[in-house]
């Protein structure tokens, strides 16, 4: 039994019991939340279809592989998997595009391979930076976001390097 396998069931158990204890209508609340997220899933579908088209064409044309082998001397020097570079570039721009790329990576390489793990960690620990900044400052009168974007992108770049580093450190590659 792994610790990570205990966390999830315990979390669900704790939440439901606490909900009952606090006299929350657990069943209907669950339904409400589930419905909300199902709608979100269908909301992203059109965007995902568009980005999946682009990413699938890029992969089928051979351009994605060419890009990967082109940059692999540099990335292998840094200890990063070249296959994850397109994902790292796409991530701050488009969530659906990044999801499409991850889907491709996990189909081509095993999710338990080094490349599959780094890609998973990268997607799990980063956000759609450009979109987030646009939405948050769009609600204010701020015109100049000053060094918001450089700081955010520095974090995204750090996340890429650290994804490879932590996978090697924690999961042994």
């Amino acid at each position: 039994m792994r610790l990570s396998s205990i966390i999830i069931p315990i979390f669900v158990l704790g939440t439901v019991l606490y909900g009952l204890f606090k006299k929350v209508d657990v069943f209907n609340t669950f339904i409400e939340g589930a419905k909300e997220n199902i709608l979100v899933g269908f909301d992203i579908l059109p965007t995902l279809v568009a980005l999946m088209l682009a990413v699938s064409m890029l992969r089928a044309s051979g351009a994605l592989n060419a890009l990967t082998s082109l940059i692999s001397p540099i990335t292998s020097f840094l200890g990063l998997p070249a296959e994850c570079v397109p994902l790292a570039l796409m991530r701050p721009v488009s969530g659906s595009g990044a999801l499409s790329l991850l889907e491709g990576i996990l189909s081509e390489h095993s999710p338990d391979s080094y490349i599959g793990r780094v890609a998973s960690v990268l997607l799990g620990s980063t956000e759609t930076t450009f979109y987030t900044i646009a939405v948050y400052f769009g609600a204010t009168k701020v015109k100049k976001t000053r060094h918001t974007l450089p700081s955010a992108l520095a974090g995204d770049f750090a996340a890429f390097i650290l994804s490879a580093l932590t996978v090697r450190l924690f999961l042994g590659h």
């Binding site: 792994r2 966390i7 189909s107 799990g124 996340a159 932590t166 996978v167 999961l171």
Partner: peptide
């Protein structure tokens, strides 16, 4: 997504994700 692609342990990445975040 990891589980759908046949990962033996889809949540093994959890410590990495937390540290990187």
């Amino acid at each position: 997504l990891r589980l759908a692609h046949g990962s033996v342990s889809p949540l093994e990445i959890l410590p990495c994700v937390l540290a990187v975040s």
